[in-house]
Amino acid sequence: MSEKIRLIGIYSAIIGSIYILYGMLEIIAWAAGELRFPLSPSPDIFAGFILVVIGSILLYRVRDLLSMRYEGLSFFFVALILSAIIGIMYLLIMGADLLDATIIGEPWAFDSAAYNLPAIVLFILLLPGWLIIRKREEFGE
């Protein structure tokens, strides 16, 4: 069991770093105006801020997880929930835009800037984490 916690630690360290990296890039892209980065982070200061928040929560207690202490799991769980809220929100907005295009009769194209691709991809990458939440009874002390 405790080995598994160490794995979660490594997992959240990696995903957390990517979250922070992309969050920062989005903030920089927003501040710099015309600047664009590869893999299309959208220039959105709020979205960037939220990605940084999720990333920081993931990284905050990684040390606990790596040293196999349970306390760090709280932060992992909350990051999972936040990541899902943001990811699902963008997917819903995408769906709504698709629906809108159909209603108005205009063509629709995936706009990576509006739907924040990194947030969606990272949400999907964190999905395996939910398997751990489902077995949360194991973690009761």
Partner: peptide, 21 residues
Amino acid sequence: IPIFLAMMWAAFQFTFSVAVP
């Protein structure tokens, strides 16, 4: 507080973007 702001932002985006169609 950052989490609260993030939640509100998401609620806001959801409400006003998904309502458009």
